[in-house]
């Protein structure tokens, strides 16, 4: 990366910060600009939701912050350092549970402890004692007590997704990346998992970046919602969500809540109407 004369610095109270980040996939004719000169600042322990139409670069932001891909230009800071040098523990959950089918739920959830420092050094010694208890407690917290010895394919989609959340949280990540983790679930399971997610966030306080298509989900879970626009992807508006916690499903029928989701919906739909002819 070309370092400018005065190399960019992270903002003091930001845990995650994007500065003028642009990202393009492909080359030449197939070039797609996924993200255009985007700025984003997230404080430690905050809960941010990214919403927007398909192809607006939501998932790209997640991948950039996780370090799975490198920005074409601009800088991504995590914990005050550039993302490539980042020593931060990250947890990630996707739309698919992506559990390993040859491992039991317990072993699946324990996987980060086997990989991530400082746990990996103690993995052999503690995997049958302390780590096992920790995993079982976490599984119990999401309503999977007694399922630790089952294999993923013996469970329903909702149960696998709960386990996937556990795997994203077991190594106490400072940063939690959720890429539409409730997108493939039915309405009731989804609402139940929102409650569980809120509880997990309130007890552990990781910094969360949630990508979602579901505006109710964003308004229910997040402290702040960033609305994005496609082609080129960028953040067009940020709304603070002020509802007190713990929030309930009943809240989602509150006029204020409904007004918020309607306003978000209009923001997202408007540019789409202009581009689609």
């Amino acid at each position: 990366m070309l370092a400018p004369a005065s190399s960019p610095r992270a903002h003091a109270d930001a845990f995650v910060e994007l500065q003028k980040v642009t990202h393009t996939y492909g080359r030449g004719d197939k070039e797609v600009r996924a993200l255009e000169s985007t700025d984003l600042r997230i404080e430690k322990g905050d809960f941010i939701a990214l919403v927007g139409p398909s192809g607006c670069g939501k998932s790209t932001i997640l991948k950039l912050v996780t370090g799975l891909i490198n920005a074409s230009s601009g800088v991504v800071f995590v914990a005050g350092r550039e993302v490539t040098a980042e020593p931060v523990r990250v947890g990630m959950a996707f739309q698919n549970p992506t559990l390993l089918p040859w491992l039991t739920l317990r072993d699946n959830v324990m996987l980060p402890l086997k990989i991530v420092a400082p746990f990996r050094q103690e993995y052999r010694a503690k995997r049958r004692s302390e780590f096992r208890d920790r995993v079982d407690a976490l599984l119990a917290q999401v309503g999977l007590a007694g399922f630790a010895d089952k294999y993923p394919w013996q469970l329903s989609g909702g149960m696998m997704q709960r386990a996937s959340l556990c795997r994203a949280l077991v190594h106490e990540p400072q940063l939690l990346m959720l890429d539409e983790p409730f997108g493939a679930l039915d309405q009731f399971t989804r609402e139940e998992l929102w409650g569980i997610m809120q509880e997990l966030w309130m007890t552990r306080r990781p910094t969360v970046l949630l990508v979602t298509h579901d505006l109710k989900e964003a308004a229910y879970l997040a402290n702040r919602i960033c609305v994005m626009q496609a082609r080129p992807g960028r953040i067009i508006q940020e709304s603070v969500v002020g509802f007190a916690r713990p929030r309930t499903i009943a809240l989602s029928y509150d006029p204020e809540f409904v007004t918020l989701t309607q306003r978000l919906r209009e923001l997202i739909m408007r540019p789409a109407k202009e581009t689609v002819q």
Partner: peptide, 18 residues
């Protein structure tokens, strides 16, 4: 191998060997 499975590992900063 599904790229998502590898992404899970890469997000954990797993080495190639891991």
């Amino acid at each position: 191998t599904e790229p998502e499975l590898e992404d899970v590992m890469r997000a954990l900063k797993a080495s190639k060997f891991d």
